[in-house]
């Protein structure tokens, strides 16, 4: 935990400096007749971010905050496994959207999670994974007219749109 605390703080310090530099692309000072420039607000906020991170780093050196005292691992074996399997699964689902579309990607993800991570029966898995895309399609694409991405599966949806809309 202690190492994670300092690594995160250093990364956030870097982010703060980057945001300060980026904000300074617009005027950060006073423009006569217009008041503070466009970069003024984010620049000073990013400066406060940097200041607070320096405070976190000082606390780390002085071992003042609980994470800076903790010798426990940041993610233990179970935590790491879950993080990779769940986080990886969600990333995979979003990556699949461009290929097979959002509805089918959701179904694939549900099968992966419920059957393989959850260890449920195929009956339960398919009982959840198959109706979900149908419901999301009817709710979003048809009722709300918010067309979710279909990827390369576009031809499959044309007759459905023709039928419902």
């Amino acid at each position: 935990m202690r190492r994670a605390e300092i690594i995160t703080a250093l990364l956030m310090a870097g982010l703060s400096i980057y945001l300060m530099v980026k904000s300074a692309e617009l005027p950060i000072g006073w423009i006569p007749g217009e008041g503070p420039g466009g970069g003024f607000w984010p620049f000073w906020l990013a400066a406060f971010m940097l200041g607070s991170i320096i405070w976190v780093i000082v606390n780390w050196f002085r071992r003042k905050s609980p994470p800076s005292q903790s010798e426990e691992p940041y993610l233990d074996a179970y935590g790491m496994k879950m993080f990779l399997l769940v986080g990886g699964g969600i990333t995979g689902m979003i990556a699949l959207v461009d290929i097979i579309g959002m509805h089918l990607a959701a179904a694939v993800f549900l099968i992966y999670y419920i059957r393989f991570l959850g260890g449920h029966s195929w009956k339960v898995t398919l009982g959840v994974a198959l109706p979900t895309p149908v419901v999301t399609f009817l709710f979003f694409d048809i009722a709300l007219r918010k067309f979710l991405p279909t990827g390369f599966m576009d031809p499959l949806y044309i007759p459905l749109y023709d039928f419902f809309l």
Binding site: Y113, I114, H120, V124
Partner: peptide
């Protein structure tokens, strides 16, 4: 089970 609810929430 949370293993059914969680993936539905992610979707």
């Amino acid at each position: 089970p949370f293993t059914i609810l969680a993936p539905l929430i992610f979707v």
